[in-house]
Design a protein around this nucleic acid. Structure first.
Lengths: 337, 337
DNA sequence: ATGAAAGCGCTAACAG
DNA sequence: CTGTTAGCGCTTTCAT
């Protein structure tokens, strides 16, 4: 069924002029006489003419659309990133197609195809937890379709990226705990195939080593969600090994840990500290409030989009760039003795 | 710059056959000989051919894309809705364009244009808090582009919609509080231009009236966020009027209220109850945990999308439908004496 | 079993 | 100042 929306031809026919004249009049082309312009614009308004972006995309081989691959929108961090992306993109006259991988590799690959089929002008991507092979991005590279990776980037890939200084942030968070007097700190780590997982762990280790605190291998546990954190905490407590702190790879994990500790009678921050990562909406509503690293989602979104648009609009090639945002630690009740 | 992606023509040229044959071979048309099909498919794979969805959309006057207008992704409820939408849409071979209005009327109008320009096959919309005029949706109606409204619907508009039974849910939540023995319950209400705001207030009133509890006009306060809730609570306490409960229009408001009450030495649930609405991720991490109405975001998303796809794919017209989801109250620590 | 041609809506080079 | 023409990539009659 035809949509029935008004086209340039309809206007042309009605005014008994050519389609190209209408097209030019609509774009305020200098060649067109004032009266024609006026007639065209009036009629266009009257008929509620809406340009067909699809036709334009086909014609120009540019869609003025950017694709966004995002693991899961439900996280405060990622939804802030989206807000940043949209603000910059809309201001520049670009549309945004947002696709969730739901942390699944196969979905990520499919999305990649869809975005390509829709001829997006560029993509912003944060890879899923499952992704270990990156060849689905080759086609973008091969066809010079710009990509910018944000937050969850690919180690060693020559491509624009914007990240926060995860290592440093984790280092500072851990150091802060040590300075507050905690000694037997555990790290609930993220998946180690993600660079952010590695980096946060590195930062933790660096601070511990620097302070001369020994670490046994039970002190680093690969765990990154609310439910698992509960069990992990119970195991730690049952082990009877010395323990007085947890630095978790994200806030939900930290909160799961904190809840279980409190339930088991551990006082926070008196007996043990908990520090999270991301600074979502949760951190200020827990009791005690949760210390966390502010990941600056909105800024990451704006920055990544600016980088992408620059790439899209630039004629010439230039070397790939990495932009590192500083993350700051927000100290709250859960780690201040 | 040309994208350089392989087209049907490239394949045709290489194989010295016509573009139409390639097109047919790719779609496994019965007229085409097996060998041709094989040759085409092999070459397509080899050249990594990706069909151009833009051209297809133009040709078919169908984009296989649905537009989603959503107030703010950061809310757990809305991001769950999106997940539901995506799951159903993808399974049906549809793409999804998600646009945030950020609760602003002007943005909503702009989005409407963008979606139209991109010739989406239908839209799913939840209106912004600011929206009081709905004429920007007329063009969809006039051109038979299907719409389904979800959650924040337009009163009196003849259009498909999916909502939860807000009135009943609010009624049950309030009734529960009354049954637990609370008497002087305040309602922190949402904007009254949104139907959901009205309905939740109605439900509250119904339960109060039914129980024969009198209400003065200070007991209903139009307030729907974390920060404002804090001040409102202070005012209530300072008024020295009898008070022992708050039913809030959403969880963040409830949590803001609860925090302030606790800070002021009010014991929850002993001295006062707090009940929220939406059942976001927060409700189980507060102390005490927050009783709340489960709004079933995911189901709302799937249902709305199914309704929309049915409309899009159906040849004939049929009367508009309203689908009402039951919401259930989840009783937690904040309201159980 | 395959090809030629037209057209979706729009723009831009070229012509006048 | 305006019109003609061709073409973006694809599908689909209508021929052959």
């Amino acid at each position: 069924m035809k949509s029935g929306l008004v086209t340039i031809k309809d206007i042309a026919r009605e005014l008994k002029i050519s389609a190209s004249t209408v097209s030019r009049a609509l774009k305020n082309h200098p060649d067109i006489s004032e009266e024609t312009k006026e007639a065209v614009n009036d009629l266009a308004k009257k008929l509620n003419y809406q340009p067909n972006a699809v036709a334009l995309s086909l014609k120009q081989s540019r869609s003025s659309t950017i694709g966004v691959i995002i693991p899961e929108i439900v996280h405060y961090f990622f939804s802030s990133v989206i807000s940043g992306i949209e603000d910059v993109a809309y201001d520049a006259g670009f549309n945004v197609i947002i696709c969730q991988s739901n942390e699944r590799y196969d979905r990520e690959v499919t999305i990649t195809r869809t975005l390509l089929a829709n001829r997006v002008d560029g993509i912003l991507v944060s890879i899923s937890k499952e992704t270990k092979d990156f060849s689905h991005f080759n086609i973008f590279r091969n066809h010079n379709i710009p990509m910018v990776f944000y937050d969850r980037v690919v180690p060693g890939m020559q491509v624009d990226q914007v990240i926060i200084d995860d290592l440093d942030a984790a280092y500072r968070a851990t150091k802060h705990m040590i300075e507050e007097g905690y000694r037997y700190i555990y790290h609930f780590a993220g998946p180690q195939n993600l660079l952010i997982g590695q980096q946060r762990k590195e930062g933790f280790l660096k601070a511990m080593n620097e302070a001369g605190l020994e670490i046994n291998d039970r002190q680093i546990i690969e765990i990154d969600n609310f439910e698992k954190a509960r069990n992990a905490v119970i195991e730690i407590l049952e082990s009877k090994l010395p323990f007085d702190g947890i630095f978790a790879v994200n806030d939900m994990t930290a909160i799961g840990a904190m809840q279980t500790l409190l339930k088991k009678g551990i006082k926070i921050p008196k007996d043990a500290a908990v520090v999270g990562f991301s600074d979502g909406r949760f951190s200020s509503i827990t009791d005690p409030t949760l210390s966390s690293v502010d990941q600056h989602g909105y800024e990451m979104g704006t920055l990544a989009t600016e980088m992408l648009l620059k790439r899209i609009l630039s004629k010439k090639d230039y070397p790939s760039l990495t932009n590192v945002l500083n993350a700051n630690l927000i100290v709250r009740g859960s780690s201040r003795k």
